[in-house]
């Protein structure tokens, strides 16, 4: 908690206004708590001296904040036009077969969560995904599992 407060206060220094630190602070809270739990919202609201409703209202607008607990590894697979044309939809089916995971869901053992992304700017090497913050591209039915096996 003390650490989170310290980190947020450093962020505030970069802006002419306290509220501007809200988006980066939500990332910090997400890192500390694993997801944006009620406790996480409260910590951000208190540190930035903002109403809780404001904090939650902003957080729910953005796709990359997590409002429920996530698996150990987050698979963010793009299915936008370029990735779709290059075969991303088939990959979703394969992930479902292998891990029993649906978009928006988490595996029973808590290993993977799967989120569908709207373009991650890798259309020249489609289909592509982010696993946590690692970028993987030119995916096909074989290499996707070779890649994912590295995430235990």
């Amino acid at each position: 908690m003390v650490e989170l407060e310290k980190e947020i206060k450093e962020i505030v220094e970069r802006y002419p206004d306290r509220r501007a630190a809200l988006l980066p602070s939500l990332y910090v809270a997400q890192k500390h708590y694993g997801w944006l739990s009620q406790d996480a919202y409260e910590a951000v609201a208190e540190t930035l001296n903002l109403p809780k409703a404001t904090v939650k209202g902003v957080a729910t607008f953005y796709a990359m904040y997590k409002h429920k607990p996530m698996g150990r590894h987050l698979i963010q697979l793009c299915t936008n036009v370029a990735c779709m044309v290059m075969g991303a939809e088939r990959l979703i089916d394969l992930l479902k077969d292998r891990y029993g995971i649906e978009p928006g869901g988490t595996t029973e053992d808590g290993r993977f969560s799967l989120v569908i992304m709207e373009c991650i700017g890798a259309c020249d090497r489609a289909p592509a995904m982010l696993v946590n913050t690692d970028f993987h591209h030119s995916l096909n039915e074989n290499n996707i599992f070779e890649i994912l096996e590295n995430y235990k």
């Binding site: 630190a21 988006l23 796709a63």
Partner: peptide
């Protein structure tokens, strides 16, 4: 750092977003 909203590429939305 943005947080996954396409609309923030529109300049006035970007400004709103940077204001928190």
């Amino acid at each position: 750092q943005g947080a996954g909203a396409y609309i923030c590429g529109e300049e006035t939305a970007l400004i709103e977003s940077i204001e928190g």
